[in-house]
């Protein structure tokens, strides 16, 4: 049975905002599925609908075959959710936080204590188990939050921006834990992130979400292949249009688009690169900057949305980051 089935899922808020405009996807058991997109693209709203936190305006969602709209209580029993903002209680000890989480799922004290100790060990928090969570670092709090979402051994785990606001080392550590969970427990994991390189490394499949819709969905490698091969970025001193025309006529050159001040040239074969340089040289075009790279998910993102993720979310992202940082420091 599929772990998650989502059909034409849409959300319209009471103020008229259409956060999600018809999203469909399916997750196999044991898959790590990434939703990538700028803030406000509808990732969190999609997760909130599947995890019963907000009502579904239209469409359907099923978790392990259970209809989210009809049986939200049953869905809540089998899912784990680690929201974007920390959801641990600063006034309680790490251990107490976990035991309490277990009891929310009806566990008796004995079982909850056993599971809590296991998870504290898994996330390397045993040493700090009897300390106030308020004294934890941001990364420790996030780990505890993850542990707390796993107390009841969910079939499907939802991680909303699990690494937002964390430093690079902590981030890679969090991903290690996620990979282990997936491997050792065959847990299905749906994760949202806007760190493309992380999604690339971690996820079996990725959905690129923009303006409430999925614009592309595939394996990371397939997505990259889908937009052509290598990409050459060229910046010239004079006559951009002329350069464009010259390069266009070379055999083996694919699509040419503008990206900021650079020409973005898709190369069907790597061997075309010298020919391009030669043509430019013989036509007395002065080169200012040049780079060649294999396509990254960033390129995929630019290809499908027409803008780099970074540019799109400069404003909203820094706000979200500040909020998370503030919370972490508390």
């Amino acid at each position: 049975m599929k772990s998650i089935v989502v059909k034409d899922l849409a959300k319209r808020y009471s103020n008229g905002t259409e956060a999600v405009k018809g999203i469909s996807f399916e997750l196999e058991k044991g898959e790590i599925f990434g939703m990538v997109g700028p803030n406000g693209a509808g990732k969190t709203t999609t997760i909130k609908m599947i995890t019963t936190l907000t009502t579904i305006t239209s469409g359907d969602a099923f978790v392990s075959g259970i209809d989210v709209k009809k049986h939200p209580e049953k869905v809540r029993r089998i899912i784990g959710m680690v929201p974007q903002d920390l959801s641990v209680d600063d006034d309680l000890h790490g251990f107490e936080n976990l035991v309490l989480s277990g009891k929310l799922y009806g566990m008796d004290t004995k079982l909850a204590v056993k599971k809590a100790n296991m998870l504290l060990d898994f996330f390397d928090l045993t040493e700090f188990k009897d300390k106030d969570v308020g004294s934890y670092s941001g990364g420790m709090k996030k780990r505890l939050d993850l542990a707390s979402g796993l107390m009841h051994e969910p079939e499907v785990l939802f991680l909303d921006e699990p690494t937002l606001g964390l430093d690079t080392q902590t981030r890679s550590k969090i991903w290690d834990y996620v990979k282990r969970l997936n491997k050792e427990l065959n847990m299905t994991i749906l994760v949202t992130t806007h760190y493309l390189e992380e999604a690339d490394m971690l996820c079996n499949r990725i959905a690129i979400v923009d303006f409430g819709k999925i614009v592309a969905l595939d394996k990371p490698s397939a997505l990259k292949e889908g937009i052509g091969n290598s990409v050459m970025m060229v910046k010239v001193k004079n006559d951009l249009e002329k350069t464009k025309k010259l390069i266009e006529n070379i055999d083996g050159v694919g699509e040419i688009t503008m990206y900021k001040e650079d020409l973005k040239v898709t190369l069907k074969r790597m061997e075309v690169a010298p020919a391009i340089l030669e043509t430019m040289y013989s036509n007395k075009i002065t080169l200012e900057r040049l780079s060649i790279k294999e396509p990254s998910l960033d390129d995929v993102f630019i290809h499908y949305t027409g803008a780099a993720l970074r540019d799109r979310e400069e404003k909203t992202d820094s706000m979200a980051m500040r909020r998370t940082m503030r919370r972490m420091r508390q």
């Binding site: 809540r76 929201p83 920390l86 959801s87 641990v88 600063d90 989480s101 799922y105 009806g106």
Partner: peptide, 13 residues
């Protein structure tokens, strides 16, 4: 504010 309510809401209580 501190996100704890979200944890409660996603649980079956």
């Amino acid at each position: 504010r501190f996100g704890y309510l979200a944890k409660l809401m996603v649980s079956p209580i």
